[in-house]
Structure formats: structure tokens, C-alpha cells
């Protein structure tokens, strides 16, 4: 339950491409062929380990329907990573990628890591979009590309974890300024800048507030005794369906 960082992810893409199924596969390791339409956004969470550090992924699975578009735009705020998903058996979902990307770039932090996901790779016989096309699109727009199958779980772990690795690297490189542009009013100015790897606990407490909101990274609490009895509740757990 203790974690070093919390990353907010957002999953976007046309309706029916398998966003909710990818999330379910990642959090619960199961596949549900029929899924209710997502209303607005649903949530899932899972803990992963990168470089020996526990990282909690808080995943926002958005509704793909056009009519929810203006609402889901509000949810981009504060995301550190995005999975942009299309369905290899429906070319229109691939054609809409540009609009999704524009939306994402416009409403999120410019450092947000975007992973392009070509889902339903198990349906090879119905493929309409070649892998090369996806790769080319990703190259052109500076995205990471991966073909996945929420059904067979192929590459699902990798998609989520590689995105986290990329975010983590950006943090290490200092690209993601955890401190953000807004100074924290009550911190003395000499403490306003600090390397993101700094472990000064007092500051970490503060960093969990406004300062990190804009880039979707929150620094977790320090744990003097990890693996405490209370922690068995955590771990993997997905947000349930809607009411």
C-alpha cells in the first residue's frame, strides 16, 4: 500500500475499442466480452514496481462516446500518462486518432506520456489497420506504440508498465518537474526548487498538494515500516462498475 509515487493515467479513444476491457485485464486479470457503456469515467487502481519503487497507478477510464466528449475533456487535467486506444478491426477508430490526440495535447500537461495502443490483436482475421500504419502514426506524433489484446492479455501489462517507466524516466531526468510552475506560497523561496528525487519528507508532504496536480504525479507517503498489517487491503483492485 505504501508507494513512492502515484501516477494518474487516462484511457481515451473511440467507443468500443476496448478501453474498459484493457483496464479490467490490467487490474483484475480477467476479460469481460460484454461491457456496459462507460458513463463519464470509471476508475481502477493497481500497484506496480519500477526500479524497486512502488508506484500506484490511478487509472481513469473515460467514455468514448462522442456525446461525453466535452465532459471527459475535464478529466485530462492532472494526467501523467495517457493510453490512446484504437481497434485494429475498425479503421474509423484509427482515423479518429488525430482528433483524440489534439484533444489530449490541448487539455493536458505537455509532458504527458502518450502510448498508442492498437487493441484486439487477437482478431487477426478481421484486421483493417496494419501494424505498420500504427507504428508510422506513433513515430510521426512521438508516441510509444504497442499492439495489445485485452482478451488474451497480450501486451496489456507491458502497455501500462512501459508508460509508467517512461514517466518515471522523465522524473529522473527532471523533465517532469514535480514542483510544477506554481510556487508553493508557504515554502521559503530557497526550497522552492528541488530535484524530484529529493526525499526531504517535509517537502514530500507538501508536494502531494497543488504542486503536483498539473502533471499528474503525486509523491507517496514515506513508510517507516512497509508491509504493515493494514496493507493487505491494498494491492490490486479495480473500481467497480457504475451504480
Amino acid at each position: 500500500m505504501a508507494y513512492a509515487y502515484l501516477f494518474k493515467y487516462i484511457i481515451i479513444g473511440d467507443t468500443g475499442v476496448g478501453k474498459s476491457c484493457l483496464l479490467l485485464q490490467f487490474t483484475d486479470k480477467r476479460f469481460q466480452p460484454v461491457h456496459d457503456l462507460t458513463i463519464g469515467v470509471e476508475f481502477g487502481a493497481r500497484m506496480i514496481t519500477i526500479d524497486g519503487k512502488q508506484i500506484k497507478l490511478q487509472i481513469w477510464d473515460t467514455a468514448g462516446q462522442e456525446s461525453f466528449r466535452s465532459i471527459t475533456r475535464s478529466y485530462y487535467r492532472g494526467a501523467a500518462g495517457a493510453l490512446l486506444v484504437y481497434d485494429i478491426t475498425r479503421r474509423d477508430t484509427f482515423n479518429h486518432l488525430t482528433t483524440w490526440l489534439e484533444d489530449a495535447r490541448q487539455h493536458s500537461n505537455s509532458n504527458m506520456v502518450i502510448m498508442l495502443i492498437a487493441n484486439k490483436s487477437d482478431l487477426e482475421s478481421r484486421r483493417e489497420v496494419k501494424k505498420e500504419e500504427g507504428e508510422a502514426f506513433a513515430r510521426e506524433h512521438g508516441l510509444v506504440f504497442m499492439e495489445t489484446s485485452a482478451k488474451t492479455a497480450s501486451n496489456v501489462e507491458e502497455a501500462f508498465i512501459n508508460t509508467a517507466k517512461e514517466i518515471y524516466e522523465k522524473i529522473q531526468e527532471g523533465v517532469f518537474d514535480i514542483n510544477n510552475e506554481t510556487p508553493i506560497p508557504w515554502i521559503p523561496s530557497e526550497l522552492q526548487w528541488r530535484p524530484v528525487t529529493a526525499r526531504s519528507s517535509d517537502l514530500r508532504q507538501l508536494q502531494t498538494g497543488d504542486s503536483c496536480e498539473a502533471n499528474g504525479i503525486k509523491i507517496g507517503p514515506q513508510h517507516s515500516t512497509p508491509g504493515s498489517p493494514g496493507s493487505h487491503l491494498g494491492g490490486q483492485q479495480a473500481g467497480g462498475g457504475c451504480c
Binding site: G220, H223, G230, S231
Partner: peptide, 17 residues
Amino acid sequence: LREAKEREEQRVGSAAE
């Protein structure tokens, strides 16, 4: 609430014994 929760996580850890 998130901060409070995080502190609670800490507390769970430190107060466990």
C-alpha cells in the same frame, strides 16, 4: 483527503507495532 489518506498510510506503518 488524499493527503490525509497518505498520512494515514504512514501512520498505519509507524503505528503498526
